[in-house]
Structures are given as C-alpha cells and as structure tokens.
C-alpha cells in the first residue's frame, strides 16, 4: 500500500502525458456542460427582460438586477412556500430516518418466524408504483378534510419510513458485529435499550445518508404536494414555482429568479453533505 501511494505521488510530479491531458480536457468539457445551465440561470435571473430577449450570450449582466428577486417575492408568496417546504421536508426526514432504523432493527437483529414474509412485503412495496395508490389515498385524505395540511405528506413517513430506507438500514445493520448485541442481552439490557444505546449510535453514517437523501427527495417531491396542497398558501416551493412557467411565460427574469431560489437550499445541502452523498451512493450501488 505504501509503495503504491509513493509511486502515485512521484507520478504527480512528472510532466503530464498527452493521454492524461485528453482525459482532463474531456472531463472538464462535460463537467462544464452539466454546470453551465445553472450559471446561465444565475446570470439570467439578474438580467433585465430586454437583456434576456436581446439574445446576448453574456453569462452575467453588466448591471445586475437584484430587484428581480424582490419582485418575485412581491408577486408570489415565496416566503410562505419556502417555509412550508422546510417544515414538510424536515418533519418527513425525521420520520423516515427514525422509523426506518426502528423497523430495520427488527429485520436485522431479531429472529422470528414470519420475518422473511414480512421482509418480502418490504421488497414488494418498493416495486408498487406510487401512481396506483394516489386515487384512493387522495379520496381518503380529502374525505378526512386533511388536504392543505402537512399531514398527508408527513405522516406516511412516520410509519416505516419508506420501504427502500428500511431495506438500506437493514443491510447496514446486518454488517455490524452481533456479539455486542448478545453481550448486552446477557447483561440484561432490553431490546429498546440495545436499539437506542448500541445499534443507533453505530448506525450514524447510515442515518446521515438516509437523512440527506430523504431531505432532497422531500424537497423535490412534486406529485404529492401537488395533489394534497392545492391551496396556494399551503403549498410547497416546487408546486408554487410550477405555476410560474405558465404565469410568467414571457417574464423569464422572474421565472429564473424563482427557480434559483428553489435550487439554493439544495445546492447548499449538496455542498455541505458531499461526502455523505458520495458514501451513500457507494453503499446503494454496491450492496443491492
């Protein structure tokens, strides 16, 4: 291992080969292509309507119009949508993270007849397309008078936390050493105690992965809030924003400023949780 890393650092000092140069050029080109739309957007959100229509390729305007953002806030209840999005995403993430770990403990640690059957149900739930459930679920929430509240969006995540999350947590817990659980049992610890004091702390990396991914999922979720939060004062940022496309169809500066506001929290989370995300993906990708 040491010899290899020594060889690597020596390689770094050498003059770069044409092959490597081509590799970096290709990667940089494509990375730029993937990022460019965001840069355009940011620049575009600061332009005047006339400048946007003029068709200049300037990424950033000479005279940035910060007023575009103020205008978006004036023309639409962005702050309310933003607050709704935060409340729903945070509550849903807490629910999904905690209850998926709780249920996964049952599947990963406790032995019982019927365990395989119950886990089969978890796998089956992953495969059921959400679209088949929306009609009856919508009818029930509407009849209960709970539409335009966060409950239909948040409550389901407190009941199991999503089949895929249970699946991931179980995989992770099965990789933990079992003897600590057995030792704790011998010492007379109850299952709830073992879960809270021993397993949960050891699962911190997996919990972080699930929390980050679930927050991103909740923040971007569109179909559910679109169904359940039709009242403009109760809805989330993506749903509110989707109306911009038709409402501001000729007012690109407002559309771009609005979508930049929706992207901002995700970009921040992404930057802060980069390592967690990268680790999460390798866990998801390697152990199916």
């Amino acid at each position: 291992m040491t010899t290899r890393s020594a060889a690597d650092s020596r390689k770094g000092l050498r003059i770069i080969s044409p092959g490597r140069l081509a590799l970096y050029a290709t990667l940089t080109l494509f990375a730029a292509l993937f990022i460019l739309p965001f840069v355009w957007q940011l620049g575009g959100s600061l332009k005047t309507p006339a400048e946007l229509a003029s068709g200049s390729f300037n990424l950033f305007p000479v005279d940035p119009q910060w007023g575009n953002y103020a205008e978006v806030f004036r023309r639409a209840p962005i702050a309310t949508w933003f607050a709704n999005s935060v409340v729903i995403a945070v509550l849903g993430t807490i629910g999904a993270t905690l209850t998926s770990a709780f249920c996964a403990y049952g599947f990963a640690v406790l032995r019982a007849r019927g365990s395989r059957l119950a886990f089969g149900m978890v796998l089956l739930t992953i495969l059921v397309p959400y679209q088949v459930l929306i009609i009856p679920e919508y009818i029930v929430w509407a009849k209960l008078g709970l539409t335009n509240t966060p409950i239909p969006l948040v409550l389901p995540w407190f009941l199991g936390g999503g089949a895929f999350n249970i699946f991931l947590m179980r995989q992770f817990m099965r990789g933990l050493p079992r003897d600590m659980v057995d030792a704790a049992r011998v010492d007379g610890a109850g299952e709830l105690q073992i879960f809270r004091r021993i397993i949960l702390p050891m699962c911190a990396p997996a919990l972080a992965v699930i929390a980050v991914f679930h927050f991103i999922f909740m923040w971007n979720d569109f179909l559910r809030p679109l169904l359940y939060l039709q009242d403009p004062s109760a809805t989330t940022l993506p749903v509110g924003l989707s109306g911009f496309v038709t409402r501001f169809s000729r007012q690109w500066h407002l559309l771009l400023a609005g979508s930049a506001l929706a992207l901002a929290p995700l970009v921040i989370i992404f930057a802060l949780a980069q390592r967690v995300i990268a680790r999460g993906i390798s866990v998801v990708g390697v152990r199916k």
């Binding site: 971007n220 569109f222 993506p238 749903v239 989707s242 992207l263």
Partner: peptide
C-alpha cells in the same frame, strides 16, 4: 436538484 426548478 432535478425537478420543477430545473424543468423551469
């Protein structure tokens, strides 16, 4: 960031 904001 996929979703509504990028579709817009």
């Amino acid at each position: 960031v996929s979703g509504v904001a990028t579709a817009a």
